[in-house]
Amino acid sequence: MESLLEINNLKTYFYSENGEVPAVDGVSITVKKGETLGIVGESGSGKSVTALTAMRLSQGKVMGGSVKFKGIDLLSLSDEEMRKIRGKEIAMIFQEPMTSLNPVFTVGNQIMEAIQTHMDVGKSKAKERAVELLALVGIPRPEQIVNEYPHRLSGGMRQRVMIAMAMACNPSLLIADEPTTALDVTIQAQILDLMRDLKEKHNTAIMMITHDLGVVAETCDRVCVMYGGKVVEESDVQEIFKNPKHPYTQGLLKSVPTLIDSEQQTRLYSIEGNVPIPGSLREGCYFAPRCEFAMEICRTKAPAFKEVEPGHFNRCWLHELDERGELDVKQLVESN
């Protein structure tokens, strides 16, 4: 499949009183045409900053790497050139629809703005298109809702409006940053269903940023797991749930209670320690302080990101040493 967005060794640093904070620390991610790529990670793992940097919306300083969209280097574009791509070719939706909509304009006005910025159409045509888009995202009575202000709508409806706005120019890539986190489960199901629908109809690629493994399992084709500003594991969705390689991914999967379990677990597995504060770690594998398999080498040298199986990448010393024949991982896992 042809790749649409290629993020290569991206580094975004923030500077604070406490010094340099590498929020994104050498991230390489490729989104292919028409696929849904999941980015999973906890707070501070750098998943949102990666997306914002790609959109050129981040406050951080880009210290290296490149972001290529359809072969164009986004980081070297002028602001004006970037504005032509942002919202037209790449659209983004955010977690909290209330703070991303402007409270003093009607939703119709806000959708029309997106249309008229990128297309040469008149006001009445734009409004027609706005009504059409609202209908597309499943809003009842779109002719009336188009004249409503955001505060009159429920959370689910607002998120639909955000999606309508994002879809206004039929983007080829939609970046969704925790699109359902603020919503109730029954509404979440509606929104995920809608996104799946739109993806099929318009062949839009989706970059789905989330912390919810259920959402990943249900919507994504491929998954990148992030920890401490780095991608630690990448594979297709079946593999990651069936055969997770990185101890962090394994821990995450084991620590969520699910509705499927027939036998009753009495205790949940838990990863020791806390989510690291960005910038607090500098040496070795960032997960080492919380990893139950951590070895001497993990604390001093950073492991490389290697293909362990076709299409399955992992950043862990266990597998690197296993490959070299210096360690028997299977035995280690069993004895633990």
């Binding site: 009842p140 429920s154 689910g156 409806m157 109730d184 489960v185 029954t186 509404i187 979440q188 199901a189 509606q190 995920l192 269903d193 919810d212 493994l213 259920g214 959402v215 990943v216 399992a217 249900e218 969705v237 079946q238 749930f241 999967l253 969520v256 699910t258 509705l259 499927i260």
Partner: peptide
Amino acid sequence: QALLSAVPLPNPNVKKERIMLRGDV
């Protein structure tokens, strides 16, 4: 029934019947 069916499961192989609730609360 609808509430339980709406929860996404962290297992890509489990396909379940989803009861989609219309509209909002």
